[in-house]
Simulated assay, not measured.
Amino acid sequence: MPITLPSDLPAYAVLEREGVMVMGEDTAERQDIRRLRIGLLNLMPKKIQTETQFARLIGATPLQIDFQLIRMSEHESKNASAEHMESFYRPFSEVAATGEKFDGLIITGAPIEHLPFEEVTYWNELQQVMDWTQTHVHSTFGVCWGGMAMINHFHGVPKHLLSAKLFGCLRHQNLAPASPYLRGFSDDVLIPVSRWTEMKAAEVEAAGLSILIGSGEAGPCLVEDPAHRALYIFNHFEYDSGTLKEEYDRDVSTGSPINVPVNYFPNDDPTRQPLNRWRSHAHLLYGNWINEIYQSTPYDMARIGMA
């Protein structure tokens, strides 16, 4: 079954060329089926790239997905056109006012790691979003900074600044092979990492949370929070093959201090084309998340968030 997207959303054409099943909203409305409603609260500056990355992953399952794009109400994007934001995004204030509910919500990362949470301009509204998920979203997936924000908000777990950027494709261990979210996972997983902060395993575990994927070098990666019906991932399965290269080239061009991303370019040679060695696990993780939502979400969406 396909993911439902507006036919003029840039991601629609990209995914159609890649062979991902996509369906226009008009066609989807004619089908007598209970679609899973998945929202994307997109905090990343490159809106179109991020939309496409997540739509690609959640659109690869056998289920029909109704994909909704959400933005912070007062924060204006500097990298996406006003027309794009007006055409495809709704502010959170509008979504909350309608009382509508979602089977799943993804909260993306944001390039503001260096700031304390409370200094982020939209932190108060994001706290409202996170509290709102407890009554209006069946399962929430916090990604990178978004995951750190959620685990801090719900459990007080702090993020810690690193002395150097964790940057590259790092080996991680499957610490919970029986978890339904890791169904089909290998024991050893390569995952793109790009961050200046970390969460410490001891503090995560002291909060009573389970680390599903972790690394001796990169720390916790995937954390389950059953009490809040949430997953937190601090690294980037959703990245395209060239995303780390784009970040590296950007920093080189601006003269920012940056190391070549480890285990990414063949022989760590940035003149060579990088190989994608995480794609299959990315599809597994998000496919497993969608499947778990499908198995447990109420058919009557009005019952989402009810104890």
Rank of each mutant, 00 (worst) to 15 (best):
Leu175Ser: 10
Ser186Glu: 15
Pro192Asn: 06
Leu190Asp: 13
Pro266Trp: 09
Pro177Gly: 11
Leu284Asp: 01
Leu5Tyr: 07
Phe185Trp: 12
Ile151Thr: 13
Pro6Gln: 10
Lys245Asp: 14
Gly184Lys: 09
Lys200Met: 06
Val260Met: 04
Ala55Cys: 09
Ser253Pro: 08
Asn276Pro: 00
Tyr12Ile: 02
Leu57Val: 10
Thr108His: 01
Ser194Met: 03
His138Met: 07
Ser77Asn: 15
Glu113Ile: 11
Asn174Lys: 05
Leu126Asp: 05
Lys47Leu: 12
Glu25Thr: 15
Val22Leu: 10
Pro298Ser: 07
Arg279Trp: 09
Leu162Cys: 00
Met85Ile: 10
Gln49Ala: 13
Ala96Leu: 14
Ala202Asp: 15
Gly39Ser: 06
Lys101Thr: 08
Ser163Gln: 01
Arg71Gly: 05
Val129Asn: 00
Phe117Ile: 01
Thr108Cys: 01
His281Asp: 15
Asp66Leu: 09
Pro274Thr: 00
Glu74Thr: 09
Glu100Met: 14
Met72Asn: 09
Glu217Ala: 14
Glu125Cys: 08
Glu76Ile: 12
Thr254Met: 10
Trp289Tyr: 02
Val262Glu: 13
Val204Leu: 03
Ala230Arg: 09
Thr108Pro: 02
Gln173Ala: 11
Tyr299Ile: 13
Asn152Arg: 03
Glu86Asn: 08
Lys101Pro: 06
Ala164Pro: 00
Tyr286Asp: 00
Glu205Ser: 05
Gly156Glu: 03
Glu205Thr: 10
Asn152Phe: 08
Thr61Arg: 03
Arg272Ser: 02
Thr297Leu: 03
Gln31Glu: 15
Val120Cys: 11
Gln173Tyr: 04
Thr4Asn: 07
Arg272Asn: 05
Arg279Gly: 10
Met301Leu: 07
Met72Arg: 03
Arg37Thr: 13
Tyr248Thr: 06
Pro177Ile: 10
Asp103Ser: 04
Leu222Gly: 03
Ala230Trp: 07
Ala149Gly: 15
Glu76Cys: 06
Leu41Asp: 09
Val22Asn: 07
His236Lys: 05
Tyr181Asp: 01
Gly59Leu: 06
Ala149Pro: 08
Trp196Val: 01
Met44Ala: 14
Gly146Gln: 08
Ser73Asp: 12
Ala218Ser: 15
Ser210Arg: 12
Ala110Tyr: 09
Lys78Thr: 14
Lys245Phe: 01
Gly39Glu: 07
Leu9His: 15
Leu231Gln: 01
Gly214Phe: 02
Asn288Ala: 03
Glu113Phe: 11
Arg272Glu: 07
Pro257Val: 12
Trp123Phe: 09
Ile112Ser: 14
Pro6Ile: 03
Arg30Met: 12
Leu69Tyr: 05
Gly184Asn: 14
His84Ile: 11
Tyr239Ile: 00
Leu212Ser: 05
Pro270Met: 03
Glu113Asp: 13
Ile258Val: 15
Asn259Asp: 15
Glu224His: 07
Glu292Asp: 14
